Simulated assay, not measured.
Amino acid sequence: MSEPLLVTPLHALHIEMGAKMVPFAGYDMPVQYALGVKKEHLHCRQSAGLFDVSHMGQLRLKGANAAASLENLVPVDIIDLPNGKQRYAFFTNEQGGISDDLMVTNFGDHLFVVVNAACKTQDIAHLQANLPEDVELEVIEDRALLALQGPKASAILSELNTSVNNMVFMDAAKVELVGVECYVSRSGYTGEDGYEISVPAAQAEQLARVLLAKQEVEWIGLGARDSLRLECGLCLYGHDLDETTTPVEASLLWGISKARRVDGIRAGGFIGSDIILEQIATKQVNRKRVGLVGQSKAPVREGAVLFDADDNEIGIVTSGTFGPSKGAPVAMGYVKTDNAVLDSVIYAEVRGKKLAMTVTKMPFVAQSYYRG
């Protein structure tokens, strides 16, 4: 017998709002609402979309050595992460592969960590096995997580608390919303300006209803969340990233802090660092993650095999869809390093046909993060 699906604190509201629910990472989650995936996608780009991401794992790390201990597990500068700032990170393994990607926020009295839903159990076990006894790991069970994304997000959330206007991309603060303390970061997974809001579970529905009462706000499901993140070149763990893929292969060099690279003040010291730092130094990897734009209207999905002009197999698509904002098929995938040449044409096999795709810089749609 399969395990029953878990639900978020907003599950009943999704049902009330007519969401189409699907199993996702062990949860019953909304994939779309009445608008449909394409209209939800475009609404988020043009106005403001509300996402329930409460299936993600929320953790606290406490103790004087919390930052230094977490640095042993990620190739990121956590020790010098300023109070009130958030940083993207990833756990690495002994082979230099990525076992999950995550967000880390310094709230002064603790580090707030958000991990992927599908990796939550293994990430908690990984931390428990590797953190010293003087670092306390708390798994937060009593908070929901909402994301308000889009060009009108700031104006809408500032009606509840004007302090959010003073935040810039990757800022984080404890902010009172609907009478309770929320953890708010100016960040998200759509490429748009917006906020992620950790709210006590008991007040999650109240906050969601207050936001949805604004004419500019619509619920957005997992379907549009996926197309939004893909257009903006953002990876999905388990698809574009996995335990066999190093950050260098994944074109995530920007995610490795300078302080942790070869000449950095705290070089290496994380799991798999010898392999990863050697790849950075030698620039020798067998494959690279690239962006692809289709030359026809046919979408190219995950799993499509990629070929060069001479019909040699050179890689595979790891994420793909038709980009509603781009107006063309967009995909990302891995190709042999020699084939990772911007503006070159390669071919994806779809139902027996070879469809031309152009190797392109990502993001496919310009990111609109608010940097002040």
Results as ranks from 00 to 15, higher is better:
residue 291 G to T: 13
residue 240 D to M: 13
residue 232 C to R: 15
residue 244 T to M: 02
residue 240 D to L: 03
residue 292 L to I: 13
residue 208 A to Y: 12
residue 14 H to Q: 05
residue 353 K to M: 14
residue 25 A to R: 06
residue 190 T to H: 05
residue 301 R to V: 06
residue 102 L to F: 14
residue 32 Q to E: 15
residue 206 Q to L: 11
residue 265 I to T: 11
residue 193 D to L: 06
residue 28 D to F: 00
residue 309 A to H: 12
residue 256 I to H: 02
residue 47 S to G: 00
residue 303 G to C: 05
residue 222 L to K: 10
residue 175 V to T: 11
residue 167 M to N: 02
residue 247 P to A: 08
residue 192 E to L: 03
residue 322 F to K: 03
residue 272 G to Y: 01
residue 271 I to E: 15
residue 207 L to Q: 05
residue 88 Y to L: 07
residue 77 D to P: 01
residue 48 A to P: 02
residue 102 L to K: 13
residue 53 V to A: 12
residue 162 T to Y: 06
residue 137 L to E: 09
residue 104 V to D: 00
residue 279 Q to A: 01
residue 204 A to D: 12
residue 367 Q to C: 08
residue 241 L to A: 10
residue 199 V to H: 07
residue 167 M to P: 04
residue 198 S to V: 07
residue 212 L to R: 09
residue 129 A to G: 00
residue 20 K to C: 09
residue 96 G to D: 03
residue 176 E to H: 05
residue 38 K to P: 01
residue 40 E to Q: 10
residue 259 A to P: 00
residue 295 Q to L: 15
residue 227 S to G: 03
residue 346 I to A: 03
residue 127 L to H: 07
residue 262 V to I: 13
residue 231 E to D: 09
residue 192 E to I: 04
residue 314 I to E: 04
residue 316 I to Y: 03
residue 268 G to D: 03
residue 164 V to P: 02
residue 315 G to H: 11
residue 184 V to I: 09
residue 312 N to T: 14
residue 283 K to Y: 04
residue 183 Y to C: 11
residue 66 A to L: 03
residue 28 D to Y: 02
residue 12 A to M: 06
residue 186 R to G: 00
residue 98 I to E: 01
residue 121 T to E: 15
residue 267 A to D: 01
residue 213 A to S: 15
residue 1 M to D: 07
residue 221 G to C: 09
residue 238 G to N: 04
residue 323 G to I: 04
residue 125 A to D: 15
residue 5 L to A: 05
residue 222 L to R: 14
residue 171 D to L: 03
residue 371 R to W: 11
residue 275 I to C: 10
residue 288 K to F: 00
residue 19 A to G: 11
residue 101 D to A: 05
residue 174 K to S: 12
residue 70 L to P: 04
residue 56 M to T: 01
residue 218 E to V: 06
residue 275 I to T: 14
residue 9 P to V: 07
residue 305 V to N: 06
residue 198 S to W: 01
residue 313 E to Q: 13
residue 115 V to I: 15
